[in-house]
Design a protein around this nucleic acid. Structure first.
Length: 464
RNA sequence: GGUCCCAUCGUCUAGCGGUUAGGACGCUGGAUUCUCAUUCCAGUAACCGGGGUUCGAUUCCCCGUGGGACUACCA
């Protein structure tokens, strides 16, 4: 009888959720769903100094947006303090934990001394201060590491890991303020919450032996550990907030699709062995396995994400796309009809990489564009422009402004004028859009409509 | 300094002893075309180095080199 799969994502609420953290959450989520297990959110808020007020909301908002709702939680460690204290007392009684009154200043001195002597610093029971230095001093509780066999575990991603006990220091389990350290709270909670697989970033590998020692001392069966490869920045250093790693919410606000971010994140350190590039969430769940998770780190490449987002946008039916673009339209679009906005959206659909580009791509559909005469085709001088624009005006006077009719009239005019299509259409394009890059000319004129189109053409005649 | 990890195109990756080392992003060129974009085609570019093991190493082992993580009363 195998235990049900229960995994947790356990961020500390010290700020927003960045893409590296989201990748960890994603792999936990995929594994849980793959095995019909539970995905649990636990907030590791045992560091009161680094707490950030809105962090928990930001994290849950990010997870929700990505489609990774927790089955349980959030569970707050700060609300389980008595639990840790209780377990600590047990180990204290057994002599596994001991009280140490060494002050931070003394600790600092010991470290610098060791560094000077080029010796590794590992705190040992022998160095502990067993009595308070001042009457009111509160001790920390340290784990007493004793001699014994190597600490070994089978990592689901990295294979067998082996550590000598001698290199593990007497780490702090309970801080002087009565809060547990990460290591202690983590182990106690993972056990109490019946976590089956601990899935976390590779930076935790060096502290796993400490956790294993704790499981051993408690007489608890440790969970399976699966460490995930690092996500690196362009400079190859670990992605971090300090490094300017973007938050998940920033991508949302820039108009990225969650399914694109998810698929991209999944590709960082995981692949299913095929050449498939895009996946639905269900496909990722079905295909996910630690057997195909890398141990080598991956650099986060924003350009590939942009490409992938474009792919997902193009796959979206127009109505769906329209719903998703709410909030991204230029301010001037407010007064326009929904059918018109959809018509415009259809014209820029395949040009859109992320929604924040929408105003840039579409503002001329809603407001008069500023026209820079330098953008007009250089082949034409002022007189020629005036003449051609005038002829265009006359040619479109009686058009019904259907795309077909516009095309017929304009192509006919090109021929009559003896011009190159690109030159004449380029002239008209700048006149009505203010840009040299825009959707197709007939579609644009059709969408803009007779009145606006003719007005803009007429205005362009007066330009220097 | 100590402990540990990692190593295929610039980037994400396939490869699990014998391949013209494959795909994707990016970049370049071309086709389509009224511009841009899309789409399609082509090109560019990689096994970190040195020893082994083997008939044969990108692949297995060792040593270098490079990069990284950890080394807190932070997580």
């Amino acid at each position: 009888m195998t235990q049900p799969v229960r995994v947790r994502f356990a961020p500390s609420p010290t700020g927003y959720l960045h893409v590296g953290g989201a990748r960890s959450a994603l792999f936990s989520y995929l594994f849980a769903k793959r095995h019909k297990g539970s995905f649990i959110l636990r907030i590791e808020d045992t560091d009161r100094q680094r707490l950030v007020p809105d962090a928990v909301e930001q994290i849950t908002e990010s997870l929700d947006w990505l489609g990774m709702q927790a089955d349980e939680g959030p569970v707050f460690q700060s609300e389980r303090l008595d639990l840790y204290a209780e377990q600590a007392q047990l180990l204290l009684k057994d002599g596994v934990l001991y009280e140490d009154y060494t002050t931070p200043e003394q600790l600092e001195q010991m470290r610098t001394a060791a560094q000077k002597a080029k010796q590794p610093f590992r705190f040992r029971y022998e160095q502990a201060a067993l009595k308070p230095a001042t009457p009111n001093q509160k001790p920390v509780m340290r784990f007493r590491v004793t001699d014994g066999e190597d600490v070994i575990w089978q990592d689901a991603v990295w294979g067998e890991q082996r550590w000598q006990r001698g290199v593990i220091e007497d780490f702090v389990a309970m801080k002087a303020d009565g809060y547990p350290t990460y290591h202690f709270a983590n182990v106690v909670d993972d056990h109490l919450m019946k976590i089956s697989h601990v899935i976390r970033a590779a930076e935790w590998i060096p502290s796993t032996p400490k956790h294993l020692l704790l499981y051993e001392a408690f007489g608890w069966e440790p969970p399976v550990f699966a460490h995930l490869p690092q996500v690196l920045g362009a400079d190859k250093a670990k992605l971090s907030k300090r490094h300017g790693a973007k938050s998940v919410l920033e991508y949302r606000d820039a108009g990225y699709l969650p399914e694109a971010l998810v698929t991209y994140l999944a590709s960082l350190g995981f692949n299913d062995g095929t050449t498939q590039e895009t996946y639905t969430a269900d496909e990722l769940i079905i295909t996910f396995s630690f057997d195909r998770v890398q141990s080598s780190p991956a650099v986060f490449d924003p350009e590939r994400l942009v490409w992938m987002n474009g792919v997902y946008i193009r796959q979206l039916p127009l109505d769906d796309l329209y719903q998703r673009t709410q909030g991204f339209w230029p301010a001037e679009a407010k007064n326009s009809k929904e059918t018109y906005r959809k018509q415009v959206l259809a014209l820029v659909h395949e040009r859109l990489k992320f929604f924040a580009e929408l105003p840039l791509l579409t503002s001329f559909f809603f407001t008069e564009p500023a026209i820079d005469p330098n953008l007009f085709p250089k082949q034409l001088d002022k007189d020629q422009r005036t003449q051609i624009l005038g002829a265009t005006l006359a040619a479109l006077e009686n058009s019904d402004f259907s795309e077909a009719d516009l095309e017929q009239r304009l192509r006919h005019l090109v021929e009559k004028q003896g011009l190159k299509t690109g030159v004449m259409f380029g002239l008209i394009r700048v006149a009505i859009t203010g840009s040299t890059a825009a959707p197709g000319l007939f579609e644009t004129l059709h969408a803009l409509g007779r009145e606006t189109s003719l007005r803009r053409l007429a205005n362009a005649v007066t330009l220097p």
